[in-house]
Design a binder for these strands. Structure first.
Lengths: 210, 210
DNA sequence: TGACAATACTGCAACTTGCAGTATTGTTCA
DNA sequence: TGAACAATACTGCAAGTTGCAGTATTGTCA
């Protein structure tokens, strides 16, 4: 078990740098904010802190509440050092995973209704996430931030999420509008609209290059 | 080895539905287009078709070229049926993985220069990807699509990528502008600008609700 | 024609997920 | 008040996935 430090390790260190948390609390916090930039399974969130302890980047101490004993994790100086060092490294490129877009790419294997439904689903998911982020953030105006001194970070972070979800919703409307003109999903090739979209891309590009 | 059908299985089936490919060709195709919606490792792309064969969704036949024998995979009727069935199911929500955003969330553990550099890196990656997608797509105007009858799908798919990359580039400019006003990464809390951003979010939201 | 890059893979350890299962703690309602 | 059932707070494990090192053939340029 060589155990190298992954991005997930650093994400957990980032949370521990704020304050000590129990394993369960870490999963809760990760669901609240972290997942929008680094979505990881609950399972991993429970496992990872143990690795940090093994590596000396965090400490664990048992805190018995009734019958149930909870492990509270805290960051060490080594942990803070590792976190600062990581902040200076180059981040990995952003990556989007979207099953609905995958279905668009292979839409010829289904009906126009199928692809419309997939896009609707993506837009509904985005609308849902928009609501969640907007609700949490507007709450900060009423002093509901658990770490008020971090509000500037949370909010700037949230602006990206909101713009992304907004983009998805708007793009789905555009895409459905296109697809509505298709008699079928298959074999259309270079339609007039496709050609005009491509010309727009080409023109915008030549403008950028000047 | 129970071997269930994953989204990645269906992604490969989607490629095989277009035409038969060798393992290597599948990895090339996946890098070209598939990765923008469903980014998977080269390693998996080599392994997955073998599973499809085991499940009877694809066939494999050896095609010796010189000393080297390549396996050509082709979809079966069962494979096409599985693909059509999958097109009718609800897609998973879209997910973004962005290490640079993770650093923003924990920016207090580094300098303003650190976070600026991370954001620059994200914008540069987006600019790069924009170029790649735009180049491939404008090429379609000159008849460079390997499967001309699929142009309508490729192009509509690409419009999302381009908008996303454009959003990233624009948002990074906005975020850097904000951060430029910060004396430090830490402890700023609810600044005037943070408050005005939140008010914008709140107002836009109340408009949407009417 | 030998060197070196590019192509076309495989093996394996470690990372990650999904899901089933377990055991406390909290709540509800007869 | 105590039985039932939901919510909380986890663990075990098989299977899915990645990264990287390694290998062998093919192409190319001097």
């Amino acid at each position: 078990m060589a155990a190298r430090l992954t991005t997930s390790s650093h994400a957990l260190l980032g949370l521990l740098a704020i304050q000590p948390w129990t394993g369960y609390e870490l999963t809760q916090q990760a669901t609240r904010s972290l997942r929008f930039a680094w979505p990881k399974s609950e399972r991993l969130l429970y496992t990872e802190p143990k690795k940090l302890v093994q590596l000396g980047l965090a400490t664990a101490h048992e805190d018995a509440i009734g019958q149930r004993s909870r492990t509270v994790y805290a960051i060490t100086d080594e942990g803070r050092a590792a976190l600062s060092a990581w902040m200076k490294t180059t981040p990995k490129p952003p990556v989007l995973e979207a099953e609905a877009l995958l279905r668009l790419l292979f839409a010829e294997n289904g009906t126009t209704d199928d692809i419309m439904a997939a896009l609707d689903s993506m837009a509904a998911d985005a609308a849902d996430l928009y609501e969640q982020v907007a609700t949490i953030n507007t709450g900060y105006l009423d002093g509901e931030h658990p770490f008020p001194q971090r509000t500037h970070l949370s909010v700037l972070f949230a602006t990206f999420q909101l713009e992304l979800f907004d983009l998805i919703i708007r793009w789905v409307a555009f895409a459905k509008n296109e697809i509505a003109t298709w008699p079928t999903t298959e074999g259309l090739g270079m339609t007039d609209r496709t050609e005009s979209i491509l010309n727009e891309i080409k023109n915008r590009r030549s403008v950028l290059e000047l």
